[in-house]
Amino acid sequence: MITLLVVDDHPIVRDGLSGMFARDPDFEVLGQAADGAEAVRLARALRPDVILMDLRMPGVDGVTAIGQLAKHGVESKVLVLTTYDTDSYVVPAIEAGATGYLLKDAPRDELLRAVRSAARGEAVLAPSVASRLMHQVRQPSAGPLSERELQVLTLVADGKNNREAAATLFISEATVKTHLLNIYAKLGVSDRAAAVAEAFHRGLLTPGR
């Protein structure tokens, strides 16, 4: 069972999300928070697997809360769920440590899959978010995958999760996550499986290497 904390300043949104997940036996909603400060307090006490985090909230906003969670060593995965997909929201949230970034108009099934992926430590991006990141890195000096990004992608193709890849390369999980987000943006994909498939298609990875 995947445990959740739902964070949003609108009670209707919190109740709607909580009710949706409560109807699925694979999930348990441990609590709700109306702002970032309450989210950090509850996350430290409840230690949910995944935190659904809104960004624009009164007081402590979502990006600040994500940074505070990391500072306090809370290992819960943060999946941003917001109506905003502009660079001014996307990049700071990911840099702060968000595992994924979805928009509130995402279909129910997509949201459920995203939470399951986030619980496994996999990065999840809404297509529009992936496109924005891809546009950011599409510069002459940043087009090809770097040697480190290829190393990370090779480990992903071998079935390694973020923690295992980090241990193999002697880097942090957060660094692996950052490399994956860069890989998604450069390849124009939004998840691990698509990244591996696209890498094989482009000849970046070779079967049976």
Rank of each mutant, 00 (worst) to 15 (best):
F200T: 08
R132C: 07
F21D: 00
T178G: 09
S76R: 03
R138A: 13
L55S: 03
A22T: 01
S128M: 08
S128H: 08
G19H: 02
L42E: 07
G121H: 12
R120M: 12
G62L: 02
D87G: 14
V7Q: 01
Q136A: 15
G208M: 13
P11G: 02
A123R: 11
G36R: 01
L69N: 04
L30E: 00
V124W: 11
G73R: 05
A199S: 13
T64V: 08
L145M: 10
A165F: 10
L17H: 01
M53S: 05
I2W: 06
L180G: 02
S141E: 14
V189E: 09
P58H: 06
V7K: 01
L17Q: 01
Y89F: 14
S18P: 01
L81D: 01
E173D: 14
E110Y: 09
V78C: 05
T178K: 15
R138K: 11
P92D: 07
Q139L: 15
A199V: 12
G59W: 11
N162V: 14
V152N: 05
T64A: 14
A98N: 04
L187K: 04
G16M: 02
L145F: 10
P107Q: 10
F27Q: 00
I183N: 07
K104R: 12
D54F: 03
H201C: 09
Q32L: 05
P207S: 12
T154Q: 14
L155C: 10
R113P: 05
T64N: 05
T206R: 15
V91S: 09
A96Q: 06
M20P: 02
A167N: 14
G188Q: 05
A194F: 11
L180I: 14
E149Q: 15
A93G: 06
D15T: 07
R41N: 10
V40C: 03
H179N: 13
G31N: 00
Q68L: 15
M57D: 01
G208Y: 13
R14K: 02
R120D: 14
D26C: 08
T83H: 07
V90Y: 03
R138N: 13
A96E: 09
A106R: 11
L103M: 13
L133P: 03
L153M: 12
T82C: 04
P144N: 12
S131H: 10
T99D: 06
L52C: 02
Q68W: 10
A96N: 10
S146P: 07
I66T: 14
E164V: 06
L153R: 07
